[in-house]
Each structure stands twice: as C-alpha cells, then as structure tokens.
Nucleic acid binder design. Structure first.
Lengths: 340, 340
DNA sequence: CTGAAAGCGCTTACAG
DNA sequence: CTGAAAGCGCTTACAG
C-alpha cells in the first residue's frame, strides 16, 4: 500500500526514460540533463506526488542515509539530550537514526547490533562504553565509520566526542578543598566502563594536586549508574568519616542524598555531595546539586557532525573533540565541619 | 565494505541453488526443504558468517521490520520511558525503531515524516498530538498501520494507548477538595494539542462533581509544556486568589513552583500545586510534587504490542487501551489556608 | 543529452 | 524437494 508511484510512472507521464527521471530528480546528476527535460520531469513528479523509495536506492548504492545509535538506556537522563543533538544534526542532511538500548548487557547488545547492521546503517554512534568493546572492534574491522561519545577513542579508525572531565573534576576538587574538606570519599562508576575509569582517575589526580588522596575505606564502586547504587555506595563510604562525597555522576549523587537523608545526616552541613553531568532537574532537587555541567546536546550535534563529515563530506581522518565543561556550585556543598 | 557475503556465497559453499538457501535460512519456509539440505545450508551460512541484507529483502517483500516513532521532543522527560517501552517490545521480534523529533512544528514534522516514509517503515507510533493532524490523516489514507499514544483516537483505522486521565484528575480534585480547597486555578496545556483538551475537560468535570468551577481569571493556557510557560501562567493566575493550582503536567507544575518561590509564596502552606505524569525526579524536587503517575513505559510496550499485533499477528481491528493511573500524594499539597 | 541494459541481494510463484 | 527465472525500484556505467 506504501509508495505506489515509481520512477516508471513519472517516466511515462513526462515521456522520458526512467534513467532520465532518476538523473533529473537527483540534485547531483541534474546538470547532466537538459533544463527543459529536467523541469518536465520535476513537474510530473510533483503531479504524481512521487516519493523515491530509499530502500531501492540503498540496494543499488549501498547507502541508507541512516545511522545506528547504541545507547545503554534511554531512560537515563543523560542520554536524551545527546540523542536529540545527534538527530538534529542528522536531520539537516535528511539522515535518520536507528536507536537501540543495550542495558550494558552483552547479549542484548549483540542482538540489537545485528539488527542495526542488517539494516545496513552507514555508520554508528556509540553512547555505550565498555572498555573492552567487541562491538567497537567489529565496526573497525568491517570498516564502518564510528564515533564514540563519552569515552576515550581507541585506535586510528574511531572518532570521539567527550567532555573535559579532567578539568571539571579539578574545578570540583578545588572547590571542595577551598571549603576546607580534606577527607573526601568517592562513589565511583561501575568497573569496566570507560567513563568510570576516566572520572575516577581524574579525581585521584585532582586530589593529588592538593596533596590529598582517597582513603581505602572511602571508595566504593557502583554496579550501575543508578540511584539505588548511589545509596548503597554512600552507606559503604560513610564509615570513612569523609566530609564530602564525590559521585561519578548525578544519579549516584542523588542516591547518596537519599542515604544521608535516611540517616538524618544533613547535606551540606554535615556532608557535602557532588555530582557530574548536570542532568535535568538537578537544580530543583533538595538540596540543589553542585555538579559539573557537560554539554550533552552539543556532544550529540558534534558526534552527528563528525559522522556526517565522514559520510557525506569525505573527511576520512578521525576527529577527536573534547568539549569544555562548566562547574556549577549549588547547595549540596558547604564549609567542612569535620565530623567526629 | 558492509555485508560482503551474500546468499550466493552460501549457495556455492553448500552446493545448492540460492533459492534453496533462502528457503533453508528462513524459519517460515524451512519445512519445505529437506532436513539434511537445510542443515548443510545452515552450517555453510554460519561458516561464512552470513548475515542477510534486510534492505534487499525489503525491496522484494515490501516490509522493513522497522517502525517510525514521531515524538515532539525527546528531552521532555515524559517521552524517554515511552520510547524505551516501545523499543523493548519491538526488539522481541527483531523490529527496530526510526525516531524523529518534531518540536510540535508543522514544517519540521512534515520533513521528518517524509524521511521516515521514504524508508518504508511498516507502521507508525505517534507521540505527537495535534488535534487536527495532517500526518495522521496521511497515514490513514495510505493505509499504513498507526498507533497513537496519549490522545484519543479518531476514526476506525487508528489504535490508541492512553492513561486514564479522567480518573487521575478526579482523584486529584477529590484530594484538593478534601483539604478544603474551593478556589482552584488551572495552568492548562497548549491549545491545539489533544492531551491539553482532555485534561482541561477532565478537570472541569471533576470540579463540577463538587459543585465547583474554574473562575475566568483562574485559567491560563501554556504555549508549550515548558517550565518557563508554567512560571508565566502561574503569574497570570495568581490574581485569582486561588488556593491551589492544577497544572496540566509536571513541567508546568515545576514552573509554577518557580513562580511561587520567586514571590515568596510558600508551597504548600500558601498555595498547593499539582502536576501530572510523575516524571523522573518529581519525588526529589522541593517540595516533592503531588501528581498523577501515568505508566509511561507500559504505554510504550502496549503501543509496540498493538502495532506488532497488526504487523506480524494479523490483527486488523484497531485496539484502544486505557491504562490505569495512580494518584500520588506528596508534599506540594496541604490544607487550604484561604488567602485574603 | 538521452536511452537501453545490467545489477544491487533477496524472495517466491512456477516448473519439474 | 530443488532449480531457474523474474522482479522489487532504483542508479550508473556504456553507447549513441
């Protein structure tokens, strides 16, 4: 029932060969056909409301004008703005995105990855971030263009977009130290994800600059980037007598706040808490969260731009973009009242 | 560079005709070929790591195993869980989703709609909700299966999934009235959207049951479902001396809270505020929002199920699902202290 | 500048 | 049960 009118119908109506219709309707080849013929074809196409069938074009050209996005979980508030940015960028060139959630689960990732590849997407944007990534490896081997977001790129065939986590973490630690905090705890991200390691290391480096370090009992690694895990990890770290908790992202920070509230520990008076990303509503929660704002949407548009550069712009060199972040002080941090 | 091994390679390796390969590899036709041949083909396919090219299959069969999702704006926290639900459901049948944002903008919607149709998606799920919807009309005319979410269905060719807004609004008004509120204001959704009208009417009906009505100066219609608009509308409605504001969704309610805070009006002591949807973090904001929880994710899986019923299950009757909602009392509502 | 032909990788009536 | 052929709707060398 779908597009019934084909290039042959247009050919018939305009009295030319289907090949000429194709050439006249395609911007890139239009100059090859005489202006009057081209106009006749265009008029006929409009009259018949002809819409080209991209799947047929794909079979011939090998290109779908569609890219695949692999994402851990769209309901994590970090991702929607990134995805939106990607799509805004793609839409400018009539490209389209096929998106799939992996839940950071290897089996599910394999399944959805196959589903996207079977549909011959022209390139991939990975918002997932396993440190040892079979999907990424498969993409590189197959020579399929790929840009990774929020993680370090590996190898010469991969482009990347990320925020300047080191700078953000450094600003955050400076702030905490300036408030008198010396015993700082970390609620870090799940092991095995690239972003977790990046931020954890950045924290250690930033502390070291002030002659500080993480006490062994002041570090806990979440199993997922969830509030529940933030809560659990906060409990683990509470024994360390830390006066501030640096969480690897906002979700974990929110979980930390839950744990503190339940125990009647006041934030920020008793313990300061910081997040990372500045996700939606972090300015509205109680207390408003001190965090590092990463430019989500821009990360998406940059990722889209880089992929399009490669796909339609013929830019073959991989690009690596590190976007500036903004440290934002709100009310979850305050002067240290060293706990007893 | 993409899938290089084709059905011909598998045919060559297994010593049969390509047609036989096709039949052996396709579950639905496998019974037609002899078990030993089938096994030989399957082994050969595995050995070559053959992956069928779905775009080629599409050209023959006219089906893409892909559906289009039209959404106003993915960064609106209402939508990610719905989209996630849709994709979870689709993935069970190896279907995939092509998603596009419209910003409720007619021109943009037309552009992305064409882009999705050109890719021959098998069906559509509309999360957009113009009351007079050319996209929906085009879909119906073309006989393309469509499911609408969060709006009433029009016509016999459309399936729908929505929350029971009437019940939710009724519970909410009962609650407000039981707290002694009599002068209730409405910050309603933008005109022209189906959901706005549904909720506004539901509010009027619920008030009427208590012998109450909206004062003319106690109603404001937002231009978008944004916090900024909630803020503006709250200001408009403040002159009415209402003791409670019923916002059409959580975003608008958050905007109302902003307006009250700026003016030093305490919520809930001076004015109660309610939202709708119970979007992410509404339990964490200050004050935690009394609202109606709609089952976002389930709405998505139901929409996906209905579409799949039609696409692979052969169910041609339209389905209309109204999902139960849950009224959740938090701290943005309290006993009325009639203002002077 | 235009036409005729071939072919992208599948699936599916049609024979045998 | 299997093969040979046709064709889905395009694009693009190849002639003329």
């Amino acid at each position: 029932v779908q597009s019934r009118v084909t290039i042959r119908d247009v050919a018939k109506l305009s009295g030319v060969h289907p090949a000429t219709v194709s050439r006249a309707l395609n911007e890139a080849t239009r100059h090859v056909v005489s202006p009057v013929t081209a106009q006749r074809v265009i008029d006929a196409a409009r009259e018949l409301a002809y819409e080209p069938d991209l799947t047929a074009r794909t079979l011939r050209t090998g290109r779908t004008a569609t890219v695949g996005i692999l994402i851990p979980d769209l309901t994590n508030p970090l991702f929607p703005p990134i995805v939106r940015g990607i799509e805004d960028c793609l839409a400018t060139q009539d490209y389209t995105a096929l998106m799939a959630n992996t839940d950071n689960d290897v089996a599910r990732e394999r399944q959805v990855f196959r589903a996207l590849r079977a549909r011959q997407v022209d390139g991939f944007i990975l918002l997932t971030s396993h440190r040892n990534d079979v999907t990424l490896k498969a993409l590189i081997e197959a020579g399929i263009p790929v840009v990774v977001v929020n993680r370090h790129a590996t190898g010469p065939d991969v482009s990347s977009v990320s925020g300047d986590d080191a700078a953000g973490m450094s600003a955050l630690v400076d702030h905490l130290v300036s408030l008198g905090h010396k015993r700082i705890a970390a609620v870090s991200g799940q092991r095995g994800l690239s972003i977790s390691r990046i931020r954890h290391r950045a924290l250690e480096v930033a502390l070291k600059e002030h002659g500080l370090a993480l006490a062994p009992n002041a570090v806990s690694f979440a199993r997922t980037f969830s509030e529940a895990e933030g809560d659990r990890c906060a409990e683990e770290v509470l024994g360390s007598k830390a006066t501030a908790i640096v969480a690897a992202n906002d979700n974990l920070a929110v979980g930390c706040l839950d744990a503190l509230a339940r125990r009647g520990i006041n934030c920020p008076d008793d313990i300061s808490v910081t997040g990372f990303n500045d996700v939606l509503f972090m300015d509205k929660i109680n207390p408003p969260l001190t965090t590092v704002r990463t430019p989500h949407r821009l990360m998406g548009t940059e990722a889209g731009r880089i992929l399009l550069d490669r796909l339609v712009g013929g830019v073959f060199e991989p690009q690596h973009v590190v976007l500036p972040v903004e440290f934002v002080v709100r009310s979850s941090t305050a002067i240290s009242r060293a706990r007893g």
